[in-house]
Design a protein around this nucleic acid. Structure first.
Lengths: 164, 164
DNA sequence: GGATAGTTACTCGGATACCATGTGTCCGAGTCGTAACGG
DNA sequence: CCGTTACGACTCGGACACATGGTATCCGAGTAACTATCC
């Protein structure tokens, strides 16, 4: 069981967007994080479809958060990128084989499925307890001035162009 | 993010083994659950490597639980089949790009990685709170007599042979 | 000088290849139960 | 009748193909800003 690497990228991007003062193009976010531009674009589209971010079209356009960072949870991002379906999928094998469970026994969900569902709910609840705003604040606590540098870099031209 | 279907099979098999009175061959477990014999064998090998079950070799051999069912947690099985590594893997992209995090900032783990690790810990703790014995008891509560039927079927010959 | 039309460059969005991991399968090594055999 | 021995069938274990989904990429549609022109 492994999670898409795009989740990490998306979370970093959302955190950056929460402190940006203007729309940020996808290729700029990729450059800032040192990842593939085209593949990151795919994940940003997922975030866009989920309504977490929205695109400003045309020249000088880019992405920006649709809601305040404090109202976007980490789980929202994970769900948007990684998909809404649960990791564990009960295939109801109790109904197969020579001793299948009868119809009435299947009215209650399989005990195994219930345990897995409970665990995943705990996982989701934990992720729902943290927002993009919290993440940004943590970074600022660990290394004050980080967002100033990021905003400065975003405001400047390309990376090859020296920052004065 | 999806979990291997073998996890579900393995949990069902462990529950059956917890009520069996003699070693159960892999092909018999596959037949009982209506799943691929050879593929199930692969997952049973994983359980065996993890020490959760052990093989009785030779004729009339098979698998049996190594520990009492009450001492085997659901997480033990999930970990054995699905692997011990976490779903989220931090690739430290904060150290990449034109504004990499400096050495001292990296002494503390990335905030995103911490959030994901906390969530996964909650997930694991939830799975650790349920044992194979609990699962077996749940089945017996929902449909009393199930394990008697299973034991009877296991004691009898092949499925094609009618049970008297 | 101001409004307007054309141009340009930039943005996102979906459709398209590649590869790693899960899925499914196979055959060989080892072991126990059984039966035949000899004492 | 009992011990020994050889056999046979059954078990697991690891090594081998296939398929699905994540990974990575490309090009086309659309829009806003800029510029030059005209009134």
């Amino acid at each position: 069981m492994k999670m898409s690497a795009g989740v990490e990228w998306a979370l970093h991007c959302c955190t950056v967007l929460s402190t940006a003062t203007a729309p940020v193009p996808a290729h700029r976010l990729a450059e800032l994080h040192g990842v593939s531009r085209t593949y990151l674009a795919k994940h940003l589209q997922a975030l866009s479809k989920a309504g977490l971010i929205h695109a400003v079209e045309g020249r000088d356009g880019g992405y920006e958060l649709s809601r305040p960072a404090a109202e976007v949870t980490v789980y929202d991002v994970v769900r948007a990128v990684d998909g809404p379906e649960a990791a564990f999928r009960c295939t109801e094998i109790r109904q197969q084989g020579p001793l299948p469970a009868t119809g009435e026994a299947c009215k209650v969900p399989c005990g195994i499925a219930k345990v897995m569902a409970t665990a995943e709910r705990a996982w989701r609840d934990s992720l729902r307890g943290v927002t993009i705003g919290d993440l940004a604040a943590t970074v600022d606590t660990n290394l004050p001035g980080t967002w100033d540098s990021v905003r400065h870099w975003l405001g400047a031209g390309t990376a090859s162009e020296p920052v004065r």
